[in-house]
Amino acid sequence: MAEYRCSNCGKIITQDELGMKAKCPYCSNKILIKLRPRVVKLVKAR
């Protein structure tokens, strides 16, 4: 599930809360930043 952070109020919003809208439900700001998943990638050194 994708998570977004509002650039104005800083609240973290899930994709379920957004629905089909691209607007913060708390402050009505239209600029949302998609957060990266918390996955650690292991790379083998050669």
Rank of each mutant, 00 (worst) to 15 (best):
M1F: 05
M1S: 10
M1D: 12
M1E: 08
M1W: 05
M1A: 11
M1R: 08
A2V: 13
A2Y: 14
A2C: 09
E3K: 15
E3A: 10
E3P: 02
E3H: 06
E3M: 12
Y4W: 01
Y4K: 00
Y4P: 00
Y4R: 00
R5M: 13
R5S: 11
C6Q: 00
S7V: 15
S7L: 07
N8L: 15
K11G: 07
K11C: 09
K11D: 10
I12L: 02
I12W: 02
I12T: 06
I12D: 03
I12Q: 03
I13G: 00
I13F: 00
I13K: 00
I13C: 00
T14G: 02
T14I: 02
Q15I: 07
Q15L: 14
Q15R: 11
D16H: 09
D16G: 06
D16M: 10
E17G: 02
E17H: 04
E17I: 03
E17K: 06
L18R: 03
L18Y: 04
L18K: 05
G19M: 01
G19P: 01
G19S: 01
M20D: 15
M20Y: 08
M20A: 12
K21V: 13
K21N: 12
K21E: 11
K21R: 13
K21A: 09
A22P: 14
A22T: 15
A22N: 14
A22G: 10
K23H: 07
K23G: 04
K23D: 08
K23Y: 09
C24Q: 00
C24E: 00
C24K: 00
P25H: 06
P25Q: 05
Y26C: 04
Y26G: 03
Y26V: 08
C27Q: 03
C27L: 02
C27F: 02
C27D: 02
S28I: 05
K30D: 14
K30I: 12
I31R: 12
L32R: 02
L32A: 03
I33M: 10
I33N: 06
K34F: 06
L35G: 03
R36C: 14
R36M: 11
R36N: 14
P37M: 06
P37N: 09
P37V: 07
R38F: 11
R38C: 07
V39R: 12
V39C: 09
V39W: 15
V39P: 05
V39G: 09
V40M: 02
V40P: 01
K41S: 14
L42Y: 09
L42C: 07
V43T: 04
V43Q: 12
K44M: 10
K44D: 14
K44R: 11
A45D: 14
R46L: 11
